Simulated scan of single mutants.
Amino acid sequence: MEYRTLGKSGLQISAIGFGCMSLQPDAPHNQQLIDKAIEKGINFFDTADLYAKGMNERMLGSYLKGKRRDVILATKVGNQWREDGSGWDWNASKEYILSAIEDSLQRLGTDYIDLYQLHGGMLEDRKEEVVEAFELLQRQGKIRYYGISSIRPNVIDWYVRHSSIASVMMQYSLLDRRPEEHCLDLLQQHQVGVLARGSLAGGLLINKQPQDYLGHFATVVEQGATAIREQSVTHRDSVQTAIRYVLSNAAISSVVVGIRTAQQLQEALLVPAAPDLTAEEIAALQDAVPANFYEQHRL
Protein backbone atom coordinates (compact mmCIF):
# COMPACT_ATOMS: atom_id res chain seq x y z
CA MET A 1 0.00 0.00 0.00
CA GLU A 2 1.11 3.55 -0.73
CA TYR A 3 0.87 6.11 2.08
CA ARG A 4 0.76 9.89 1.94
CA THR A 5 0.83 12.60 4.59
CA LEU A 6 -2.50 14.32 5.12
CA GLY A 7 -1.50 17.93 4.66
CA LYS A 8 0.50 19.20 7.60
CA SER A 9 -1.32 16.96 10.07
CA GLY A 10 1.36 14.30 10.30
CA LEU A 11 -1.21 11.57 9.69
CA GLN A 12 0.09 8.94 7.29
CA ILE A 13 -2.97 7.71 5.42
CA SER A 14 -3.35 5.10 2.72
CA ALA A 15 -3.55 6.46 -0.83
CA ILE A 16 -6.78 4.48 -1.12
CA GLY A 17 -9.33 5.28 1.54
CA PHE A 18 -12.36 3.13 2.38
CA GLY A 19 -15.60 5.07 1.82
CA CYS A 20 -18.06 3.44 4.20
CA MET A 21 -21.24 5.11 2.93
CA SER A 22 -21.60 2.33 0.35
CA LEU A 23 -21.67 -0.48 2.91
CA GLN A 24 -24.98 -2.32 2.86
CA PRO A 25 -26.64 -2.25 6.29
CA ASP A 26 -25.56 -5.28 8.31
CA ALA A 27 -24.51 -7.25 5.21
CA PRO A 28 -22.81 -10.44 6.44
CA HIS A 29 -19.69 -9.81 4.35
CA ASN A 30 -19.02 -6.31 5.69
CA GLN A 31 -16.76 -7.55 8.48
CA GLN A 32 -14.67 -9.50 5.97
CA LEU A 33 -14.35 -6.40 3.76
CA ILE A 34 -13.09 -4.28 6.64
CA ASP A 35 -10.73 -6.98 7.88
CA LYS A 36 -9.24 -7.57 4.43
CA ALA A 37 -8.87 -3.85 3.78
CA ILE A 38 -6.88 -3.44 6.99
CA GLU A 39 -4.85 -6.59 6.29
CA LYS A 40 -3.90 -5.23 2.86
CA GLY A 41 -2.88 -1.83 4.20
CA ILE A 42 -5.90 0.45 3.95
CA ASN A 43 -5.88 2.48 7.15
CA PHE A 44 -8.21 5.40 6.32
CA PHE A 45 -11.93 4.86 6.88
CA ASP A 46 -14.48 7.60 6.22
CA THR A 47 -18.10 7.78 7.37
CA ALA A 48 -20.58 10.45 8.52
CA ASP A 49 -23.31 10.81 11.10
CA LEU A 50 -25.72 11.48 8.22
CA TYR A 51 -25.30 8.07 6.60
CA ALA A 52 -28.18 5.70 7.41
CA LYS A 53 -29.23 8.03 10.25
CA GLY A 54 -26.12 7.16 12.23
CA MET A 55 -26.25 3.43 11.61
CA ASN A 56 -23.23 3.61 9.28
CA GLU A 57 -21.13 4.91 12.16
CA ARG A 58 -22.53 2.25 14.46
CA MET A 59 -21.74 -0.52 11.96
CA LEU A 60 -18.23 0.75 11.36
CA GLY A 61 -17.58 1.00 15.08
CA SER A 62 -18.59 -2.63 15.55
CA TYR A 63 -16.43 -3.80 12.63
CA LEU A 64 -13.40 -1.94 14.01
CA LYS A 65 -13.75 -3.32 17.51
CA GLY A 66 -10.28 -4.37 18.66
CA LYS A 67 -8.68 -2.68 15.64
CA ARG A 68 -9.14 1.00 16.53
CA ARG A 69 -5.42 1.71 16.91
CA ASP A 70 -4.77 0.28 13.44
CA VAL A 71 -6.85 2.84 11.56
CA ILE A 72 -7.31 6.53 10.87
CA LEU A 73 -11.00 7.16 11.51
CA ALA A 74 -12.87 10.07 9.91
CA THR A 75 -16.48 11.15 10.25
CA LYS A 76 -18.53 14.25 9.51
CA VAL A 77 -21.01 16.62 11.14
CA GLY A 78 -23.41 19.36 10.12
CA ASN A 79 -26.48 17.61 8.72
CA GLN A 80 -29.02 17.15 11.51
CA TRP A 81 -31.76 14.57 11.09
CA ARG A 82 -35.26 15.76 11.96
CA GLU A 83 -36.92 13.97 14.84
CA ASP A 84 -39.55 12.47 12.54
CA GLY A 85 -36.85 11.11 10.21
CA SER A 86 -38.34 12.88 7.18
CA GLY A 87 -35.05 14.49 6.21
CA TRP A 88 -32.25 16.60 7.54
CA ASP A 89 -31.39 20.28 7.98
CA TRP A 90 -28.08 22.07 7.88
CA ASN A 91 -26.78 22.96 11.34
CA ALA A 92 -23.23 24.25 11.65
CA SER A 93 -23.70 25.89 15.03
CA LYS A 94 -21.06 25.49 17.72
CA GLU A 95 -23.66 24.08 20.10
CA TYR A 96 -24.71 21.39 17.65
CA ILE A 97 -21.17 20.33 16.73
CA LEU A 98 -20.24 19.97 20.41
CA SER A 99 -23.36 17.88 21.00
CA ALA A 100 -23.22 15.77 17.84
CA ILE A 101 -19.70 14.51 18.45
CA GLU A 102 -20.82 12.78 21.64
CA ASP A 103 -23.29 10.70 19.64
CA SER A 104 -20.68 9.92 16.97
CA LEU A 105 -18.14 8.82 19.58
CA GLN A 106 -20.73 6.57 21.18
CA ARG A 107 -21.81 5.01 17.89
CA LEU A 108 -18.23 4.51 16.73
CA GLY A 109 -17.24 2.98 20.06
CA THR A 110 -14.21 5.21 20.49
CA ASP A 111 -13.08 8.08 22.68
CA TYR A 112 -11.49 10.10 19.88
CA ILE A 113 -11.85 10.77 16.16
CA ASP A 114 -8.77 11.23 14.02
CA LEU A 115 -10.40 13.58 11.49
CA TYR A 116 -13.68 15.40 12.18
CA GLN A 117 -15.09 17.09 9.08
CA LEU A 118 -17.74 19.71 8.50
CA HIS A 119 -20.11 17.98 6.08
CA GLY A 120 -20.62 20.91 3.73
CA GLY A 121 -20.51 24.60 4.59
CA MET A 122 -21.81 27.94 3.37
CA LEU A 123 -20.47 31.48 3.51
CA GLU A 124 -23.53 32.39 5.57
CA ASP A 125 -22.49 30.00 8.37
CA ARG A 126 -21.05 31.42 11.55
CA LYS A 127 -17.73 30.05 10.44
CA GLU A 128 -15.78 31.42 13.38
CA GLU A 129 -18.08 29.35 15.63
CA VAL A 130 -17.35 26.24 13.60
CA VAL A 131 -13.62 26.76 14.05
CA GLU A 132 -14.07 27.46 17.77
CA ALA A 133 -15.99 24.21 18.17
CA PHE A 134 -13.41 22.11 16.34
CA GLU A 135 -10.48 23.66 18.18
CA LEU A 136 -12.19 23.15 21.54
CA LEU A 137 -12.71 19.48 20.65
CA GLN A 138 -9.01 19.27 19.78
CA ARG A 139 -8.02 20.68 23.16
CA GLN A 140 -10.36 18.22 24.85
CA GLY A 141 -8.70 15.33 23.01
CA LYS A 142 -11.94 14.25 21.35
CA ILE A 143 -10.55 14.89 17.86
CA ARG A 144 -7.01 14.96 16.55
CA TYR A 145 -7.57 17.07 13.44
CA TYR A 146 -10.44 18.72 11.62
CA GLY A 147 -11.36 19.50 8.04
CA ILE A 148 -14.26 20.22 5.72
CA SER A 149 -16.05 18.31 2.99
CA SER A 150 -16.95 20.89 0.37
CA ILE A 151 -16.85 21.69 -3.34
CA ARG A 152 -17.43 25.44 -2.86
CA PRO A 153 -14.28 27.43 -3.73
CA ASN A 154 -15.31 30.49 -1.70
CA VAL A 155 -15.99 28.37 1.41
CA ILE A 156 -12.77 26.39 0.97
CA ASP A 157 -10.78 29.62 0.56
CA TRP A 158 -12.17 31.04 3.83
CA TYR A 159 -11.30 27.97 5.88
CA VAL A 160 -7.83 27.74 4.35
CA ARG A 161 -7.11 31.33 5.38
CA HIS A 162 -8.88 31.49 8.74
CA SER A 163 -8.53 28.06 10.34
CA SER A 164 -6.14 25.17 10.84
CA ILE A 165 -8.00 22.62 8.72
CA ALA A 166 -5.95 19.55 7.92
CA SER A 167 -7.98 18.52 4.89
CA VAL A 168 -10.69 19.19 2.36
CA MET A 169 -12.76 16.38 0.87
CA MET A 170 -13.99 17.17 -2.63
CA GLN A 171 -15.21 15.48 -5.78
CA TYR A 172 -12.51 15.11 -8.43
CA SER A 173 -12.15 12.98 -11.55
CA LEU A 174 -11.31 13.23 -15.23
CA LEU A 175 -14.97 14.20 -15.77
CA ASP A 176 -14.96 16.66 -12.86
CA ARG A 177 -11.86 18.78 -13.23
CA ARG A 178 -13.36 21.78 -11.47
CA PRO A 179 -10.90 21.58 -8.55
CA GLU A 180 -8.00 22.06 -10.99
CA GLU A 181 -8.95 25.68 -11.67
CA HIS A 182 -8.14 27.04 -8.23
CA CYS A 183 -8.68 24.73 -5.26
CA LEU A 184 -5.96 22.12 -5.73
CA ASP A 185 -3.18 24.67 -6.11
CA LEU A 186 -4.50 26.69 -3.17
CA LEU A 187 -4.66 23.66 -0.91
CA GLN A 188 -1.23 22.40 -1.89
CA GLN A 189 0.25 25.85 -1.32
CA HIS A 190 -1.17 25.93 2.21
CA GLN A 191 -0.34 22.27 2.95
CA VAL A 192 -3.95 21.23 3.32
CA GLY A 193 -4.53 17.61 2.33
CA VAL A 194 -7.13 16.73 -0.30
CA LEU A 195 -9.37 13.69 0.07
CA ALA A 196 -10.81 12.99 -3.37
CA ARG A 197 -14.15 11.28 -3.88
CA GLY A 198 -16.02 10.37 -7.06
CA SER A 199 -12.87 9.42 -8.94
CA LEU A 200 -14.80 7.02 -11.20
CA ALA A 201 -17.58 9.55 -11.84
CA GLY A 202 -20.22 7.15 -10.61
CA GLY A 203 -18.97 4.45 -12.97
CA LEU A 204 -19.19 6.61 -16.11
CA LEU A 205 -15.44 6.30 -16.64
CA ILE A 206 -15.38 2.52 -16.48
CA ASN A 207 -18.59 0.64 -17.21
CA LYS A 208 -21.73 2.77 -17.07
CA GLN A 209 -23.79 3.81 -20.10
CA PRO A 210 -22.71 7.36 -21.11
CA GLN A 211 -25.01 10.17 -20.02
CA ASP A 212 -24.77 13.92 -19.52
CA TYR A 213 -22.63 14.75 -16.50
CA LEU A 214 -21.69 18.07 -14.89
CA GLY A 215 -22.04 20.08 -18.07
CA HIS A 216 -20.52 17.41 -20.30
CA PHE A 217 -22.75 15.90 -22.97
CA ALA A 218 -22.92 12.12 -23.11
CA THR A 219 -20.67 12.15 -26.17
CA VAL A 220 -17.90 13.83 -24.17
CA VAL A 221 -18.43 11.40 -21.29
CA GLU A 222 -17.96 8.57 -23.77
CA GLN A 223 -14.76 10.23 -25.02
CA GLY A 224 -13.47 10.27 -21.45
CA ALA A 225 -14.22 6.60 -20.89
CA THR A 226 -12.59 5.74 -24.22
CA ALA A 227 -9.49 7.74 -23.31
CA ILE A 228 -9.27 5.92 -19.99
CA ARG A 229 -9.35 2.59 -21.81
CA GLU A 230 -6.78 3.73 -24.36
CA GLN A 231 -4.35 4.91 -21.68
CA SER A 232 -4.66 1.68 -19.73
CA VAL A 233 -1.65 -0.57 -20.22
CA THR A 234 -0.76 -4.19 -19.59
CA HIS A 235 -0.37 -3.67 -15.85
CA ARG A 236 -3.13 -1.08 -15.40
CA ASP A 237 -6.86 -1.42 -16.10
CA SER A 238 -9.52 1.29 -16.47
CA VAL A 239 -10.29 1.53 -12.75
CA GLN A 240 -6.62 1.91 -11.95
CA THR A 241 -6.10 4.47 -14.70
CA ALA A 242 -9.05 6.60 -13.60
CA ILE A 243 -7.90 6.63 -9.98
CA ARG A 244 -4.25 7.09 -10.93
CA TYR A 245 -5.29 10.23 -12.84
CA VAL A 246 -6.58 11.69 -9.56
CA LEU A 247 -3.57 10.51 -7.55
CA SER A 248 -1.23 12.06 -10.11
CA ASN A 249 -2.05 15.51 -8.75
CA ALA A 250 0.41 16.35 -5.98
CA ALA A 251 -2.32 17.92 -3.84
CA ILE A 252 -4.15 14.62 -3.35
CA SER A 253 -3.55 12.76 -0.10
CA SER A 254 -6.01 9.91 -0.67
CA VAL A 255 -8.74 8.78 -3.03
CA VAL A 256 -11.74 7.67 -0.98
CA VAL A 257 -13.45 4.83 -2.82
CA GLY A 258 -16.96 3.69 -2.00
CA ILE A 259 -16.73 -0.05 -1.32
CA ARG A 260 -19.57 -2.50 -0.75
CA THR A 261 -18.41 -5.70 -2.53
CA ALA A 262 -15.35 -7.93 -2.52
CA GLN A 263 -14.75 -7.11 -6.19
CA GLN A 264 -14.74 -3.36 -5.54
CA LEU A 265 -12.30 -3.85 -2.69
CA GLN A 266 -10.02 -5.97 -4.84
CA GLU A 267 -10.06 -3.37 -7.63
CA ALA A 268 -9.19 -0.64 -5.14
CA LEU A 269 -6.38 -2.66 -3.58
CA LEU A 270 -4.71 -3.11 -6.98
CA VAL A 271 -4.41 0.65 -7.61
CA PRO A 272 -1.27 1.38 -5.54
CA ALA A 273 0.74 -1.27 -7.41
CA ALA A 274 -0.39 0.03 -10.82
CA PRO A 275 2.11 2.14 -12.79
CA ASP A 276 1.91 5.90 -12.40
CA LEU A 277 0.59 7.81 -15.39
CA THR A 278 3.24 9.45 -17.53
CA ALA A 279 3.04 13.12 -18.40
CA GLU A 280 2.06 12.11 -21.92
CA GLU A 281 -0.76 9.87 -20.66
CA ILE A 282 -2.11 12.63 -18.41
CA ALA A 283 -2.03 15.09 -21.32
CA ALA A 284 -3.90 12.63 -23.55
CA LEU A 285 -6.62 12.18 -20.94
CA GLN A 286 -7.01 15.93 -20.46
CA ASP A 287 -7.16 16.47 -24.21
CA ALA A 288 -10.06 14.02 -24.40
CA VAL A 289 -12.24 15.87 -21.86
CA PRO A 290 -12.30 19.67 -21.70
CA ALA A 291 -11.96 21.11 -18.23
CA ASN A 292 -15.19 22.19 -16.57
CA PHE A 293 -15.53 24.95 -13.99
CA TYR A 294 -17.59 25.78 -10.94
CA GLU A 295 -20.46 28.02 -11.95
CA GLN A 296 -21.46 29.01 -8.42
CA HIS A 297 -19.66 29.82 -5.17
CA ARG A 298 -16.70 31.23 -7.05
CA LEU A 299 -14.08 33.46 -5.50
Results as ranks from 00 to 15, higher is better:
Ser9Lys: 06
Gly78Val: 10
Ala268Arg: 03
Cys183Thr: 13
Ala27Ile: 00
Asn79Gly: 00
Lys67Glu: 03
Arg229Pro: 05
Gln189Ile: 05
Gln191Ser: 14
Ala37Ser: 14
Gln12Asp: 11
Lys127Gln: 14
Gly121Thr: 12
Phe293Tyr: 14
Lys53Gly: 06
Leu23Thr: 03
Leu136His: 11
Trp158His: 13
Val257Gln: 14
Ile252Ala: 04
Gly141Phe: 11
Lys142His: 04
Asp287Cys: 07
Asp26Arg: 15
Tyr116Phe: 14
Gln31Trp: 13
Ser22Thr: 14
Glu95Asn: 02
Ala284Lys: 07
Val221Lys: 05
Val220Gln: 14
Phe217Glu: 11
Ile34Gln: 02
Ile34Tyr: 01
Val220Arg: 07
Thr47Ala: 04
Glu180Asn: 11
Leu299Glu: 13
Glu222Gln: 13
Trp81His: 10
Gly17Ile: 01
Lys76Asp: 11
Arg139Ser: 14
Arg4Lys: 15
Gln188Asn: 09
Val130Glu: 00
Arg139Ile: 07
Asp157Phe: 04
Met122Leu: 15
Cys183Phe: 01
Ile259Thr: 14
Asp185Arg: 14
Ser238Ala: 15
Tyr51Phe: 13
Val168Glu: 00
Cys20Ser: 05
Leu123Phe: 02
Val255Leu: 00
Gly41Ala: 03
Trp158Glu: 11
Thr226Trp: 02
Val168Lys: 03
Gln286Thr: 14
Glu295Trp: 06
Leu123Ser: 10
Ala48Phe: 09
Tyr159Lys: 08
Leu6Arg: 12
Pro272Leu: 08
